[in-house]
Amino acid sequence: MLVTLLSRAIRIAAAFLYGSTGETIIEKSGHLNLGIPGIMCFGAVGGCIGADMAQKGGAGAFGIIVATIFFAMLFAGAMGLLYGFFTISLRCNQNVTGLTITTFGAGVLGFWRKNLLNIVVSDEGTITFKAASDFIKAPMFGAVGDDWFSKIFLSHGTLVYLAIIIAIVVAIVLKKTRTGLSLNAIGENPAAADAAGIKVIKYKYISCVLGAAIAGIGGAFCLLDLQSGSTEYPIEAIGWLAVALVIFSLWRPGIGILGSFVFGLLYVMPNYINGIGTEYKKILEIIPYAVTALVLIVISFFNKRETQPPTALGVPYFREDR
């Protein structure tokens, strides 16, 4: 049972990890994007459309996975671009724009699912992308052995490993390369970065679109892997937890890998605890949120520079204001 618990936790962790890696990139550029849940919904819609198209076009497992990723990134990236256009060029309030995108994205996912049901006649009364989902869920390393190690670590679909790879790459880029340092500088003090010759607007746009695109893969992963292609359940809650995870991981995608595992464990644990009533499982669901709130308070309490949010987070930057 412990093996199933850990395996399940790692799978859910991947969804959090996509969202939080994407949001970290956006927050590093000084933009607090509260639209991540909505953007993940868009990614989910895109991923399903892509997977469905590829499958109907007769693509193999590899083709389906690539199409899923590509369309998820395309749809979510478009929303990221919209967010960027509103907050960077039109200078709108970031929180307001983000919340609007969340409303809109969740609405679009729900509407898309309902509208599909109106067109496609389904026997089960619900639309699933089960066939495509089977390809995405298939273990990346072929047949899974019977030992605990391969069950926990080798039994997952490709997207789980991709999440970890993306997080590691982003961590290295942010920490070690010139691009990453420039992005950090923009999040800390955009005016100084601008004066130093960094193209602030360009960086901000790229990070908004790229971050959204990565989060979008997470949305597609939620529907096609976690929910086995069923479109029944909303994925907003996972999106909000991903935003929380950014804080929990102190704006470091590397720590985010561990953090997402912890979140995944906390998220699935209530289902694996026997002998308590369902109502107490609801109490256990508080833990990820409560822990995040606690982390937020503790880091502000110590007030160390390394653990703080980017200084200019949520503060708009307009060159003409100087």
Binding site: L82, F86, L90, R91, C92, N93, V96, T97, T100, I101, T103, F104, G105, A106, G107, V108, L109, G110, F111, R113, K114, N115, N118
Partner: peptide, 28 residues
């Protein structure tokens, strides 16, 4: 139209986008 309960959120989203964007033309 049997669009379900999410359709009003989509429309509200479109409305919000327009109203947010117009503030830019009001202020700049």
């Amino acid at each position: 139209q049997a669009f379900g309960t999410s359709y009003p959120s989509v429309m509200a989203g479109i409305f919000f986008f327009f109203i947010i964007a117009v503030e830019f033309f009001v202020n700049y």
